[in-house]
Simulated scan of single mutants.
Amino acid sequence: MIKINEELNFPVDDTLFVFALDSEAGKVFNDKNKLITGIGKVNAAMELSKEIHSRKPKLIVNLGSAGSKGFSKGDVVCCTKFVQRDMDVRGLGFELYETPLSGVPVVLEYGLKMENIKEGICGSGDSFEMNHSETVYNIVDMEAYPLALIAMKENIPFLCLKYISDDAGSDAADDWAVQVHLASEAFKKILFS
């Protein structure tokens, strides 16, 4: 069982574990319902949509690496809010990060809160962010926003845990390459212990 809190549990067999890269999953998830989407918002959206319709999961769990200046390397953070950080249509009178005419707020609130895990706001975009200075979100990744949006539209509970692999600063790429392999063991301790 995946225990979210005292009242909410989901069978592992009915859970879909979603990663961008196999290196984030390690060997821990080889015997689970695992989906590797590839990097970026389009790949994530396309692969999750296909998988939902074939497997019909009762819970979607997005696990992966992320950068943050507000959390420390090695922290696991539960993201319950999401921002599409590369959406900028201010030139047409829309708010920064607002998807025009979608009815979706700038900060999408759709994620389960897991007890005893720090909470964060994830900014997803199709760029590897270095020199992070934004204040609307405190974690950066490349896939969580569309995964959360699809889960919301499909009315499937969504849990998003991010392993902080780098500080989204000038050394982010080097730090990520070293840290990404540690993510799966951190997720295992939280989800299966």
Rank of each mutant, 00 (worst) to 15 (best):
N33I: 01
K189S: 13
E109P: 08
L149T: 12
L16C: 03
Y163Q: 06
N33A: 05
G38C: 00
V18E: 05
G67F: 04
V107T: 13
G125P: 09
K188T: 12
F187L: 07
I60Y: 15
K118N: 09
K113A: 15
Q84T: 09
F82L: 11
Y163I: 15
Y145A: 09
K188M: 07
P105A: 03
F192R: 14
L108Q: 14
A173D: 04
K153D: 09
Y97C: 12
L8E: 04
M114C: 15
G93P: 00
E98I: 00
G40T: 06
V178R: 00
L92S: 06
G125F: 00
G125W: 01
V106D: 08
Y145L: 08
F187R: 14
E24Y: 05
D75C: 15
R85M: 03
D14G: 02
K189W: 08
E51A: 12
V18Q: 04
K32A: 02
K153N: 12
P157T: 11
S127M: 03
Q84D: 05
Y110L: 15
P146Y: 03
R55E: 13
D174L: 08
G70Y: 14
M46F: 13
D167P: 01
L101D: 07
V107L: 05
F187A: 09
L182F: 06
E51C: 11
N138P: 04
F158I: 14
Y163N: 07
K32D: 13
S133P: 00
E95K: 14
S68D: 01
D88R: 11
G125L: 04
F187M: 11
D31Q: 12
D174T: 07
A186I: 10
M142T: 08
I36L: 03
A177S: 06
I52G: 09
D175P: 01
S23G: 04
M46P: 09
A186S: 15
C160K: 07
L8W: 04
G91W: 01
G169P: 00
L159S: 10
I117R: 14
I121E: 10
V76E: 01
P11C: 02
A25D: 03
C122T: 14
L48W: 08
K113R: 10
K73D: 11
A173I: 13
D167R: 03
V77D: 09
V140E: 05
V61I: 15
K118V: 15
E6S: 02
G111F: 06
A173Q: 01
D75E: 08
K113I: 15
N155W: 14
K69R: 05
V89L: 06
M87R: 01
F10M: 12
K162R: 06
K81N: 12
H132Y: 05
V140C: 06
S68T: 07
A173W: 07
L59H: 13
F19T: 12
V180D: 01
D166G: 01
G26D: 13
A183I: 14
K188L: 02
G74V: 13
G74R: 02
K73E: 12
A172D: 02
R90P: 02
A20M: 04
L191P: 03
E95M: 11
L48F: 04
I139V: 13
E115V: 04
S23T: 11
A172T: 05
L101Q: 10
G67M: 03
A66Q: 13
N131P: 07
L161W: 10
